[in-house]
């Protein structure tokens, strides 16, 4: 059925918990956080992820910049960062 999740986290304000070992939080940590705590139906995870990373076809922006230019999953998050996931799929 349709599009189970709307990936407009633009409208979500979240407090990402700190990593236990004190290392800086990265986008990879954020993705894990979203999958673990925000996606309720496990079936929806594959709409978001493929082979452990964001599916091709979903555009990820870090502060409006293509995440490819920011080191993708390795980008170290700062307070106030805006991460947007936008589907490039068709709305026909």
């Amino acid at each position: 059925m349709g599009l189970p999740i709307k990936l407009e986290f633009l409208y979500y304000k979240i407090d990402l918990p700190q990593n236990e070992d004190g290392s800086p939080s990265t986008v990879a940590d954020l993705i894990k956080f979203i999958v673990d705590t925000m996606i309720k139906d496990p079936k929806d995870v594959e709409v978001f992820l493929e082979n452990g990373t964001i599916r091709p076809g979903i555009l990820t922006l870090i502060n409006d910049t293509d995440w490819e230019l920011e080191g993708e999953e390795g980008y170290e998050l700062e307070a106030g960062d805006v991460i947007a996931f936008t589907s490039t799929l068709h709305g026909g």
């Binding site: 059925m1 349709g2 599009l3 709307k6 555009l59 922006l61 409006d64 293509d66 947007a84 936008t86 589907s87 490039t88 799929l89 068709h90 709305g91 026909g92």
Partner: peptide, 20 residues
């Protein structure tokens, strides 16, 4: 990808759900 980015940056009003 560029069409989506353009719409996003220009804040165009579009509908993004897929056909049911």
């Amino acid at each position: 990808k560029e069409i989506v980015l353009y719409a996003h940056y220009k804040k165009l009003d579009y509908f993004s759900t897929e056909c049911t």
